[in-house]
Structures are given as structure tokens and as C-alpha cells.
Design a protein around this nucleic acid. Structure first.
Lengths: 344, 344
DNA sequence: GAGCTCTGGTCAAACGATTTACCAAACCCC
DNA sequence: GGGGTTTGGTAAATCGTTTGACCAGAGCTC
């Protein structure tokens, strides 16, 4: 860890026998500046030799921007797919040479304010305000005059751009998959929480049934907690009926996992006796079940990318932009849990 | 997004009728500076009123450090527990007012070099070099004279500090749990990959057997891929024997999931006929199985915290430090998959 | 009242870039 | 050879802090 004394443009300039200005012009390839190829080469060679490295802090100070984005989220880590969102954002930022600062606020408003303030002091140019599952939030007061995009969240006021999964089309796709295989009695294991995903996927379920000319049977919709135990309970209610559904769409892979347990218990084979579609494409769950679970993937990576690209674009425009709200599709991941309805 | 013109110390100084120096002294609570309470209050009031906000870029430039850490990792997101590590690091940094920049390199050396260079240009003070599962790596040339700590990785040369899970004690703990319940024939579903976790957990398995006075039976160690299919194959090899083990320790929860499938197929009840211990405490897997899986948790959060604290400490000392290598314990998470061996 | 020490500040020089002016020499045209 | 233009740069101000050096006035001592 020998503290190598850092080389600045001044050092390069001195060694190359030119002014700092020239070094700056050369190293930044400033267009429209007339500098002989000879000088250019010399400056570059010297910079290379001295191990010159740009000082982004100094540049940021002068330019008034840091080329840095912040991702602040309520709970970065409690959901296993959070990483994909962060990854998408980070990669999109890296592509244009920006970097991402990461902060987690644990839903603590005081902590959140403190952290945002800290990021603002670091002259962060824009914010991604993310929640780790699709929610309705309001963007913190502190951020009102810094460019901000909502990630996996929508704002009640609609005042800033946002990107969320398209829950409705996701639900529709799931049910269409069952319909396509010939199912007509299709159950829905839904979630009791009042979140956009619940309403959206239910709406998708309705739409798909309607499109297939299947009458909605409210008793085939069973709500419970979104974990595997909720899945068990809800599945048991549906599958112990004499007119049990031949296919079920589950709000989450975890609920689907519960449904698998109940099916095994009742001696129902998947997919011969019962087809199942999940949601989330949860790593190590969907592909660990037997048969592997057909499910819908949340577009976390894509949302991360979209949010950064939108943010960069909004920051480019000096003028205030009209916010744009995007829903990204949830692609279906076909595995082996869906088949034609049994003779039953 | 009205670009509010930023207020600087100069503005505050002018409005308060003092010099910039005084403002700096007051706002930073510089010790040993004599300033009347009256002036202090006035400066603070004015700063508050004008909405003054520190400019960390300018300070960083002056001070030569940014109070920023970078977490560079090979694959941030492909493992669901990665988040815990990032979270631990971020929270430890936040506690002392530092922030974390995040970069993912996808195991691409060219990309890695580019990103590290970019972070270095931003005057990042220290690096966390993380891998998303315990590996042996060498720290990139570029980082040799910037403080760096390895996270979930160890370096071959041992030249920088590192923190990893204690695989040996983890393996031992798992097997001890089975021994404690009275098991004497204990199988090990291990992994074929040549990584520290494989050797470490096997060693732990050996140690626990030896401590219990149980002779090692090599045929009870079945190696396969670490996913659920590998678990199925390995479990089938062990459980179809006439002298099948009464308890098995699985390299991963995913392998344990495979073992559950085989047990169900063979009509073996867990834990009455077979006890199972997993590893990883994988979200939504361990607690989604029936019965819920007893397993070992990887100390990802704690490793993140340790790494940041170590890094901060090493940066404090100007002198070169002798690197410290830490193994953190993997705590057991008891659920319902372990019981006394059956009469069989 | 000369000489000291405090008190409560201020001045100006960094830190390392970018950018707006400006300029000397060379060249061109008639 | 006088005036204008192009070429290839340079000087200096600036971004917003921190900090080491300095200083005027008040109070104390003898």
C-alpha cells in the first residue's frame, strides 16, 4: 500500500513541456481544438508513462456534476431477486461510464432522510428510488428537485417517471397458458395483501377467462398469505372440492410450492391431474420442484435498465419533462407443470 | 426539477457577515477554534435558512479522500443471498457516514479493469473485492496500492485481508446435530466442484464423526452437482442401499430438495425414517419444504460488515498492515427435518 | 504604559481539473 | 510589405472547500 504520489495534469504538462490546458484538451479529445499530432502523441505518451489517472472529483467540482447515480431502496436484500434490479441499473449506468451508489433505508424515514442528504452532498446527479416489490409510494421531499425515477414502484401523484412489472398482462399470460392447454376450470390462488400485484394479476385472470369465453366463478379464487403455507391452505380449499379445478394459477412460486404439497397429499399428479402456473420465477424454487414449475418471470433486470436509461435521458434535457410511466411484460418461463386437463 | 442555484459557503458567509473560514469552522465543529456562541448560532441559522448543503466533491478534492468505498464483485446478482452481503457492507459503511459504490464485472477481466479504473478515478478510498461464493482469487494488479479486502474469497498469496464462511465448523455443526439426535450412519451428499466449501464441509463431516467415535465409511459420501438434480442422484445412490443411512447432511439446500424428492419416492418419511440437514438457508427453499429443512446459514451479512470494518481500520492506519484472515461461523437454523433415527 | 497573552476571527493558498480569453508566429493575398 | 486569417497553443479564472499563517483589539501584569 505504498502511497504512490498521484500524478496530476500539472505533472504531465511539465513532463511533456506543454500547458495544463493542452493536456486537458488532448486527454479529453476536446473537439475543435487545434493541436498537432506530434504534441498529442507526446502528451498521451507522457500521461501513460507517469500513470496519470483522471481525478473525477476535481472534474465533477468544476463541471457541477458527478456522473453518479444513487439507488435508494427500502429493503435491498430481503428479496432474492432484488439483485437483478440492481444489476440492470448498474450495468446500464456502466455502459455510459456512470457509477451507482447503493443505499438501503430499511423503511426508516429518519435513516432515509439522512442517507439521501449524504448522497445529495456527494452531488449525485440522479436518483433511482426503488422498492423491492411493486408498491405505491411518494417520493421524499428531499428529492423534489433532483431528477428521480421510481423503480418497481409507482407514485400516487404520478409526478415522476416510474417503471413496474405489467401485472395484468402477467396474470393474463399465465391463465392463457392454461386455457391454451384446454383447461376450463381454472383456480386462482391469490394474495391477501392489498398491493398492485394482487389487483393486477386478478384482473389479468379475469381478462383471460373472458377472452376464452369462460364464466368467472368467484369461488375458484382463493386468497391467503403469499407464502407456501398460504398456498397450502388456499390450494386445499380448492382441490378438496368435488368439482376441483384442473388447473391453478398461483400468485407466487411460494404459493405454488404449497400447492404441490397439497397435490402430493391428495394423490394428484402434476401435470396429469393438475396443472400449475406460478409467478416470480423464484431461483431454486421453480426449478427445484418436480415437475419443474412453469411460471412468470418478473422483469427486474429490464426495469433496472429502463429506469437508468430514462433517468439519464431526463437529466440530459434541461427542461422539466413530463413523467413517463412504463409497465414491462413478465415473460412466461415454460417448464413441466402444465399439461392438458386429465379425463377427471 | 427547478434547478435551485446551489448555496455555497461563500453565500452563507456573506449572509452571516463572516468569512468563509469561519463558516467552515462552525459547520464542521472544528475543535480548538475560538468562535463565540453568538457567531456560531448565526452561521448555523443562516446555513439552515439558505438550505446550505455541504459539497462533498470539493471537500474530497481538498482532503484527498472521498469517504467512498467500492464493492466490486464477479456476479452480484446470480445468487439470491448476495444481497445480504451487499447489505451488510452498505450498512456498516453508512454507520460511519461512508457510502458504497457497486460494480459487477461478470467475470470479464477487461470489463473489470475498466470499471476499477473508473472507480479509482473517482478517488474511491478502498475496495471490497467480492465473489458470490467462497473462492480463491488473486486481487487485480490495479488494486495493489489501494486498500482492499476480500469478501467471501481468499487470496492465494494471502497478501490482503479476507473474510469467508467457516466451512469446516459448518460441516461439523451439521453432522453434530445428527449425532446429537442419535444417528450413527450418516451420509454426506457432497459437491463435485473443487471449491473451498467442498473440502471444508467434508473435513467438518470427518471431524464430527471422529469426535463421536464413528468410523468413516467412504461409501456414505456421494458426490454430484450441487443442484436439486445432483441431490436426487446422490440421494438415490445412498437411500436405495439396504444399509441406508438414517441421516444425511447435504452440501446445499438445493441438494437437500432433491433428497426430499427421492425420499418421497421411496416412501421414506422425514424425519421419522430419514433426517436431513441442508446448507445455505436458502430463502423460500428451506422453509418451503415439508417438513421445513434444518440447515446452516451462511454469514453473508456478517461478512459484509466485517469486511467494511476491517477496511476502514486498515485505511486509518497509514502504515502497511499485516493482513488478517477471518472465518465466520455458519449458525445452524433448526427446523423440522431432524429427529431420532427410526427403528429401521 | 510597555510587553504579553488571549480572543475571535480573517487571508490566501492549496486541491485538480475545465474553459474563456487571448496571443505570437506563420502564412496568404494583392 | 501591410493587413487579415489560420495555427497551435498559453494564462488565468473558476468550481467549493480546508487549513496554516497571520492579525487587530482587549485584558492583564508589573
Amino acid at each position: 500500500m505504498a502511497k504512490t504520489p498521484k500524478t496530476s495534469m500539472r505533472d504531465v504538462a511539465a513532463a511533456a513541456g506543454v500547458s495544463v490546458t493542452t493536456v486537458s484538451h488532448v486527454l479529453n479529445d476536446v473537439p475543435g481544438k487545434r493541436i498537432t499530432a506530434d504534441t498529442r502523441d507526446r502528451v498521451r505518451a507522457v500521461a501513460q508513462e507517469l500513470g496519470y489517472r483522471h481525478n473525477h472529483l476535481a472534474r465533477g467540482l468544476r463541471l457541477g456534476r458527478s456522473q453518479t447515480l444513487a439507488l435508494v431502496s427500502d429493503v435491498i436484500a430481503t428479496t432474492p431477486f432484488a439483485g437483478q434490479m440492481v444489476l440492470g441499473a448498474q450495468e446500464a449506468a456502466a455502459k455510459v461510464g456512470w457509477v451507482l451508489m447503493l443505499v438501503n433505508t430499511s423503511r426508516d424515514p429518519a435513516l432515509e432522510a439522512r442517507e439521501i442528504r449524504s448522497l445529495l452532498e456527494r452531488q449525485v446527479d440522479g436518483f433511482l428510488y426503488a422498492t423491492m416489490f411493486h408498491r405505491i409510494v411518494e417520493v421524499p421531499e428531499l428529492l423534489v428537485d433532483t431528477p428521480t425515477v421510481l423503480l418497481d414502484a409507482r407514485s400516487a401523484s404520478g409526478s415522476v417517471s416510474s417503471v413496474v412489472p405489467d401485472e395484468v398482462s402477467g396474470g393474463r399470460t399465465a391463465v392463457e397458458e392454461l386455457v391454451r392447454h384446454g383447461h376450463r376450470r381454472i383456480g386462482f390462488l391469490t394474495n391477501v395483501d392489498d398491493i398492485p400485484a394482487t389487483a393486477g394479476r386478478l384482473e389479468g385472470y379475469r381478462q383471460a377467462l373472458a377472452a376464452a369465453g369462460i364464466a368467472l366463478d368467484e369461488t375458484l379464487v382463493a386468497a391467503d398469505t403469499s407464502d407456501s403455507y398460504g398456498g397450502e391452505r388456499a390450494a386445499r380449499r380448492l382441490l378438496t372440492r368435488t368439482d376441483r379445478p384442473t388447473g391453478i394459477f398461483c400468485f407466487s412460486d411460494r404459493m405454488a410450492m404449497g400447492a404441490y404439497h397439497v397435490a402430493a397429499e391428495l394423490g394428484l399428479r402434476i401435470p396429469q391431474d393438475l396443472s400449475v402456473v406460478g409467478f416470480d420465477n423464484q431461483a431454486f424454487v421453480a426449478d427445484g420442484l418436480r415437475p419443474e414449475l412453469t411460471t412468470l418471470a418478473l422483469p427486474h433486470y429490464e426495469m433496472g435498465v429502463w429506469a437508468v436509461e430514462q433517468l439519464l435521458q431526463e437529466m440530459d434535457l434541461a427542461a422539466p419533462v413530463t413523467p413517463s410511466h412504463q409497465s414491462l411484460p413478465c415473460p412466461i418461463v415454460r417448464r413441466s407443470s402444465v399439461g392438458p386437463p386429465g379425463p377427471g
